[in-house]
Design a protein around this nucleic acid. Sequence first.
DNA 1: AATACATATGAATAAGTGTTCATATGTTAA
DNA 2: TTAACATATGAACACTTATTCATATGTATT
Lengths: 133, 133
Amino acid sequence: MADREQVDRCEVTCIHEEAVSAVKQIMISDDEAQSLADIFKTLADRTRVKMLFALMQRELCVCDLAAVIGASESSVSHQLRVLRTNKLVRFRRDGKMLYYSLADDHVITLFKQGLEHASHDEAWAAQFLDLCR
Amino acid sequence: MADREQVDRCEVTCIHEEAVSAVKQIMISDDEAQSLADIFKTLADRTRVKMLFALMQRELCVCDLAAVIGASESSVSHQLRVLRTNKLVRFRRDGKMLYYSLADDHVITLFKQGLEHASHDEAWAAQFLDLCR
DNA sequence: AATACATATGAATAAGTGTTCATATGTTAA
DNA sequence: TTAACATATGAACACTTATTCATATGTATT
């Protein structure tokens, strides 16, 4: 085969030259891929999913959020820091309490897409799709 | 079990009754939240992001994929199993080689949304948005 | 000032995950 | 059958991460 060269190096054996170099040209860099992965990593936890789902409905203070999702306030506070760092939520202070809400509706769109993918296999997902508008 | 009791328990102190019960009514369950988190977890790794990005351009065999993203074939194979398990990629066999490609375009839409979120802070993201169509 | 309280933060622990290395599987050709 | 090869898989290890507990911060009230 013309595009196969496996001369002295045995590591790489079956490269299709043109395919590899063509795709390499527009390949995302390590740092860029990491940034993109970090966004999804923020959504890749059951507790944070529930928190964001709750905040999709209305703004909530930390202890309400903890009560809604059934987690400790400390745990919720730690996770809120993750969400804040990644700019998925914002908050306002009212007295002693901090009210958190979604920073924008990218989360909603991402959830919608995720649910759409899930609804291929799981019936419950379709139902929640309606809540993402 | 009853809805809420904050009488004798000191753990929960600042509950807004109506807000909590209202949000609780439509709250996603633990298992459902886990399923949704798992979808994002699949995208939450730099190597897998690069793999999917490459497959967005064209189908590739395992060793080409490894060459494109600069990872070992073993590592790529392990990650392909993750992507297969979560139904993000499919493959066809041709002789000894397996050619992988995206299972559907949910990945593309999810990437698009992720990049849109990233492009708030990072300039590179906008450029890649064009590749997601 | 002191106290109460909502939330944040640090340290420690346990569970999860990605990579590497070695080995196995399955296909093609001799 | 045997050999070569593309890919898959299992085990081990390093690294990351979510939770808990204890403590700190900051705000309101007395």
